[in-house]
Nucleic acid binder design. Structure first.
Lengths: 141, 141
DNA sequence: TCTAGAATGAGAATCGTTCTCAGTCATTAG
DNA sequence: CTAATGACTGAGAACGATTCTCATTCTAGA
């Protein structure tokens, strides 16, 4: 995966510096999207907050990361679909945590068909979709 | 609809004051969720920002409004499902606008079945769901 | 090696949101 | 009718997440 990212960044004249590698490593080891604050807790002072924010937006612009806008206005980032596969989100209404979930191919095809159908009926060109399922996670249940 | 809200609020000892009526009126006339800033532009100084924020959270706590967390960490509110029906969102990746879309019953049942299925397979208790479709709106196309 | 462009780190600045507090209003009890 | 109670309001201060600024450091390529 490191390789894929290296290639992608090189194409765009963006350097894959050590700070950025820390960010990617932290996200690669996560079960779901992470906020800048959470990443900073995990990475520590090796990447100061201001640099962390900058790295996140650079990596987002390069298509390596994708933002997810969660409860209370917190932005969380995760690796883009082409790096970790398409998936959906389970959002806990109590603690706000977000977990990834991948659907079996058959289900995913149903969702995709639905989205295409909708696009065909309204003045809107669909690019991507996420099924956001709100509920209570195992810890808060 | 005013009546339904009046009843709901009375049950909870929350007053339906003129400021709150302005908020509801603005949201009832919208095609999709609105941010505090957008509402303030629309309503004007009749409801100062600090009161507007308070009204939004009071109405949310009373189950009249539902928050939607959009791009760049902006929170937008809309009338709860029991007031305007269940629906999904079309989110423009360019301008960030959010539009509501209701699915035909048959489609909605498919989504619901999917969500139930997922809930049955993971340690998570689904309460609600939204299909968020990202794309380009007619203005940005 | 030298240089231009990219990246960094620390702190200031910004912006959305929440809090505080004093004053107002509406409802209920006397 | 009047007072008491509790909800509501408005203005500004405070707060927290994010972005910006700028001087410095690094890196790749000439």
């Amino acid at each position: 995966m490191e390789r894929q990212i290296e290639t992608r960044l090189k194409e765009r004249d963006v350097r894959f510096t050590s700070g950025r590698r820390w960010v990617i490593a932290a996200l690669a080891g996560s079960e779901g999207p992470r906020s800048p604050a959470e990443l900073h807790d995990e990475i520590g002072s090796r990447v100061p907050l201001s640099s962390l924010y900058r790295s996140l937006s650079v990596l987002e612009a390069a298509g390596v990361l994708v933002p997810h806008f969660g409860m209370k206005g917190v932005t969380r980032y995760e690796l883009a679909d082409w790096l970790q596969g398409h998936h959906h989100h389970l959002i806990c209404v109590d603690c706000g945590s977000v977990e990834d979930v991948s659907l079996p191919r058959e289900y995913e095809e149903r969702v995709q068909a639905l989205v295409d159908d909708i696009g065909a009926h309204v003045a809107f060109a669909p690019i991507d979709h996420t099924l956001e399922i709100e509920g209570r996670c195992s810890l808060c249940a």
